[in-house]
């Protein structure tokens, strides 16, 4: 009797362990940037190469930094959500990662442009500063220019409703 109880408990514990462990996304790595000032970077603007974009442009307003590329197919799936967020009055700054200008223009012309400004990171050097390893990636930056949240992979309704919007609302209040 005791033996069956022990086997039952061990079995349940293992099932629980697998349930949690296998449910986790191994691609979602905790970002060491959270709680720190946005990393220093300096890249030309996508549309206006004479202008430069840097971490200073992310201050004074809660900002979403979205890393994308025209070759990134999962970026397309989150694009409509970005457009919606823009319509809601949020400031979005894009980081066009390891892309070509012409291809990036084509992507925005067909899908629409949700970004207030876009950094053109041709070499991927700014991407390294931001610890980018899988596009699309989205960072939430508060008014002081501190990174508050990072999402790896395409944004979806659930993340936006349950995590992003409450966090942004909270950051805008403070």
């Amino acid at each position: 009797m005791l033996r069956f109880a022990v086997i039952g408990v061990v079995f349940t514990l293992l099932i629980g362990l697998f349930w949690v462990g296998l449910g986790l996304n191994p691609r979602e790595l905790p970002s060491p940037l959270i709680g720190k000032s946005a990393p220093a970077f300096r890249v030309p603007e996508l549309f206006d190469a004479t202008r430069e974009l840097s971490q200073a442009d992310l201050k004074n307003k809660v900002t979403l930094v979205n890393v994308w590329a025209s070759w990134c197919s999962s970026c397309r799936s989150e694009h409509r959500h970005l457009l919606t967020l823009r319509r809601q009055g949020l400031r979005l700054v894009g980081l066009n990662y390891k892309d070509e200008r012409a291809a990036a223009f084509g992507y925005l012309n067909s899908g629409g442009n949700p970004y207030e400004a876009i950094g053109f990171d041709e070499s991927g050097a700014a991407g390294i500063e931001w610890g980018v390893y899988g596009t699309p990636e989205t960072f939430v930056i508060d008014r002081q220019g501190v990174v508050r949240y990072k999402h790896v992979g395409p944004l979806n309704e659930v993340v936006i409703r349950d995590t992003l919007l409450p966090l942004i609302a909270e950051l805008e209040r403070t």
């Binding site: 790595l29 905790p30 970002s31 060491p32 940037l33 990393p39 390294i128 500063e129 931001w130 610890g131 390893y133």
Partner: peptide, 8 residues
């Protein structure tokens, strides 16, 4: 590397 990508 760690300050950008974490201990992983």
């Amino acid at each position: 590397m760690v300050s950008r990508y974490g201990d992983f």
